[in-house]
Every structure is written in structure tokens, then in C-alpha cells.
Amino acid sequence: LNEYMEKERDEYLKADTYERTEERQDYRNGYYERDYMLSIGKIKLRVPRTRSGEFAPTVFEKYRRCDQAFALSMLEMVVNGVSTRKVKNVVEQLCGEYVSKSFVSSLTEKLDPVVKEWASRSLSTDYYRYVYVDAMYIKVREHHKVVSKAVYIATGLNEGNKREVIGLKVSHEESYEAWKEFLNELVGRGLQSPKLVISDAHSGLKKAI
């Protein structure tokens, strides 16, 4: 890899060491050390530099693409319900490298705009004949303690008989006001009046429907 980067710098400069030529683009400026992760473990490379600082070996561009793919794999684990602690342990087993839980958590923040776009998408392009509404309770870590919260879920059956989650919202508890707000948001996003709404017998939910 060191030899490969050296050749790349030669090609970039268009001149060998100490060679005088009108085609020369820049001048050599030593090396700097950088760690590089391979499947066999970590190695230390001597990365060649130029005076202008514009030369960049292609080795690390390939590494960056691999790094992005690895980050996406970690995100997929999180989406599928794997805890940040388990993701951290998997990374350490695969790479022998320590990854903090806060790093994994910061990665999941990249999902926020994706989820927000999905959650606010228009519902006017499909007609949902039947809509199922219900709440499930999940444990959430909030202000350094674990609390129980209600997740309101609306599932629609479209004209192609495909079920689709059309709404999702987290609230402190089930109440008429919260259900009414949730259903109004669905209408505001373009939900047309269905033939039937299916729910349990929660009085606040029935009143909101």
C-alpha cells in the first residue's frame, strides 16, 4: 500500500525524485502516518504528501466507502431493534476496535430526517378503505430513567388490499385529546374518510373517531 501511494504521488507530480522537468506539477513534502483498518487488523501507513497539499491517495477514498457501508450496516441493526450496547459489542467482535455507545447513538440521529419525512408524507394519493387504530406501550429512557409511553398507530388497508402504517405518534398516555389530535393530523395529511375504522373499546379513542 505504501508503494502504491508512492507511485500515485509520482504520477500526480509528473516527475521522479530530484528530476527537473517542465511538466512537474508540485514537489514532494515527506510523509505522515495514518492507521488503516483491514480484515486482518490495523496497520500503520506512511502517506506521501506534497507541498500544496492537494494530492490525495485513492486508498482512503475506498476506505471511506467501506466505512459508509459499515455505518449503514450498524444503522440497519438499530432499525431492526438491536440495542446500542449489542451493536457496540458486534463491532468490537468484527473489528477488534472499541466503539462507544454514544457513537452508535449519534449514528442513529441520521435516521431522524428519514423518519420525519416518512411520518409527514401525504396520504392523499391513496384511498384507505379500512383504518385500524390502536396503541401499544413501550419502555423509553427519558431523563436518565425508564418510563412507559403509548405509541399511537394507524394502519390503513388500501385499494390494492395492502396494509400500510399511515401514522405513528408517541404520547405519555391514551386520552381523548391525544387521540383526537392524532386523527386530525392524519386528516390534515390527506386521509380521506374510510368506510370503516376498527379499534378497541377505549372510550377516548371511540369518541375521537
Rank of each mutant, 00 (worst) to 15 (best):
L168M: 15
S199Q: 02
Y137T: 06
Y27C: 08
G160M: 07
Y4M: 10
T21A: 06
Y31T: 14
V99D: 01
G188W: 05
K62W: 02
V78M: 10
K44I: 05
F60I: 07
V146F: 05
K101W: 00
I40D: 13
R141A: 02
C66W: 05
V99S: 01
R121V: 10
F103S: 15
F70T: 12
V147Q: 12
T108H: 11
R34H: 09
S120D: 14
G188P: 02
E76D: 14
V114R: 02
E3Q: 14
Y18D: 12
V140I: 14
N80E: 10
K162N: 13
R64F: 08
R46C: 03
E117Q: 12
S100H: 03
V115P: 00
T17Y: 14
N184M: 11
V91K: 01
Y137F: 15
R49V: 06
K116H: 05
A69V: 12
E11A: 12
N184H: 11
L75C: 06
L186Y: 09
P194M: 04
R64E: 14
V165Q: 01
S124E: 14
R163W: 01
G188Y: 03
Y137V: 13
N161P: 00
V47D: 07
L157I: 15
K116L: 07
E164P: 05
L186H: 10
R24N: 07
K207L: 13
W179S: 09
L13F: 10
V151C: 09
E173L: 05
Y27M: 08
Q192I: 00
V91R: 01
E22G: 14
Y31I: 07
N184A: 10
D200S: 11
V165T: 13
K206A: 10
S100R: 08
E3M: 03
S148E: 11
G167L: 11
M77H: 13
I166R: 04
V197Y: 03
N80W: 00
T50M: 02
E92M: 09
D26V: 06
R64N: 14
E6H: 11
G53K: 07
T50N: 13
E97N: 01
S52G: 03
C66L: 12
G156T: 09
S39V: 10
V87D: 01
R28T: 06
